[in-house]
Every structure is written in structure tokens, then in C-alpha cells.
Computed example of a mutant assay.
Amino acid sequence: MDSPLAERTALLPRLHLFELMDQPWYPRAVRNLSTDYLHTVSTRLGVFDAAVDVLARGLRASGGDTLVDLGSGGQGPVPRLRRLLEARHGLETRAVLTDLYPNAEAAGRAREAGTDYLSQPVDARRVPPELRGMRTLFNALHHFRPEEVREVLEDAQRRGEAIAAFEVVHRTPGAVLGTLLVPLLVLAFTPLIRPLTPLRLLLTYAVPVAPLALAWDGLVSTLRAHRPEELKAITRTLQRPDYAWEVGEVREKGKGAVTYVLGTPVRHATA
């Protein structure tokens, strides 16, 4: 059990249980079933749409047009958010997708659509210096313990890069109970996943590996989630005059709250 600042005020203590997708031994084919599902859900339902305004502010503060996405999995919401950034804010962006366990099949589809997806593993705590651009993470912070979250944020700050991390999992009793619905959602959304392979159908409907694995990881994700006050406690330890931190929640009508951390370099005007 972790005990960051403000833990005593939380209704549920943070439990850093094991998540299947984090394990190096987890079969790549089964991990891809999960990451492809999460990409489909985030795209079809637009669960991260509320992040667009925060992303736009971060991009403008950074002065760049490149998103370096960390923990991309099956591409995540980045393709959809790039379209929304252009439609809502007139910002044309390029994106580089990365992951500690790259999804080779998703990478191929991303490249066909004109988005880079690096084939080599990238650790969000130690991003290669040649990867320049605003860093993003979507539903990835809960994979890290509090001290590791600090490493992720501090690495961006040290390099002078903007960073924005977004979470739609929340550590509440309601969210924990909501994970009981995950197997049904997997059954419902699987026909929408492309490509719809025989292996995916087999491990979803005949042998329910994907529904059960996603249900377990969903439960663990809620118990691992960092509350906004805990994230604020972490960013307070990173305060510097040349870098600004912001933690909050945003929401779009009809959709759940999105917790975010935004870090941006402060550019002082010169006479």
C-alpha cells in the first residue's frame, strides 16, 4: 500500500496491486487484445474529449506542434484528439506514439494513417532526449507509484518539455463497482475492433480471456488511481520559477470527469 500526502483523507487507500498489462511475461497477443479494446472505447465514446482544451493550452505554452505520447498501447485517444485540436482550436499537430511494450500491429495501422509509432520500448520516466515535443499520457499515471509519477513529471521538467497526463479512472467506491460491467462492455465493443481476428473472437467469446483480463486490470486501475490532491502534493515538490504545474478535473456534458496534470515551461518576456 502506498501512502502519499493526503492519503489519510481518501475514502479508499491506494493499493498498488499487479496489473496484467504491466507484466513483462504477459503474452504480447493477449496484451494487444486489451490495448486495442481500450483504443476502440476511447475513440468511439470520446472519453478523453474534455482533454482537448488542456492540450491546446499546453501546446501553445510549449511553442511546438508535436505530441510525444507515452504508454500509447493500441494508439489510445491521440488520433481522435488531434482531429479535435484542429477542429476546435485550429491547431495542426503531428504525433509520435510510444510504449514500454509497443503494439506492433497497432503501430503498423498508425503508420498507415500517417502517425509515427516507435518500435523500440520507451520508458516514460526516462524519455530519450531526441524525442522532442509535448509529452502526453492517457490513463497511464496509475501504472506508476507516487515516487515514479514524480520521476515521469520531473523528466519532462528537466528537459524543458511540456507534459499533460489525463486519467479517467477514479479511486471511488462507485468506480470499483463499475468494473463489474467491464466484461459486458468487452463483449459489446469487440465487434467494433479492427481488425476483428479469429484469435480475438476465440479469446473473447469462446474462452473469455479478454473480458476477464480487462475486468481485473480495470479493478486494479481504480484502486491504483491517484486522486487530484495526491497529484498536487507531488507537483508541489517540483516547483521551480521556470516551470508551472496545474492539477484539476475537466468534464464534457454527458461524459465522466477527466483528472489532469499539466506542466509547462514558463517563457519570460525579454525587454
Rank of each mutant, 00 (worst) to 15 (best):
Y205V: 02
P173E: 07
F189P: 01
L196E: 04
A188T: 13
R150V: 06
L180V: 13
T190A: 01
R200N: 02
R200G: 01
A113Q: 15
D123K: 09
M134C: 02
R171E: 12
A140E: 08
L184W: 09
T197A: 02
F144R: 00
D155Q: 13
T204S: 03
V169M: 11
R145V: 09
R194T: 14
V176K: 02
R224Q: 00
V176W: 10
A140Y: 08
V127L: 03
Q157A: 03
R125D: 12
L214A: 14
P198R: 06
K232G: 05
T222W: 08
K232D: 15
I193P: 05
V169C: 14
E229T: 09
R171S: 12
F166S: 13
R125Q: 15
P128E: 12
V207I: 11
V152Y: 04
E154C: 00
P195M: 06
D123H: 03
A156Q: 03
P198H: 09
G114R: 13
R236H: 06
V220C: 02
L153D: 04
E151F: 07
P121S: 04
E130M: 08
P146W: 08
A244Q: 15
L137M: 13
R171K: 05
R111L: 11
L201Q: 00
F138N: 08
R125G: 13
R240D: 15
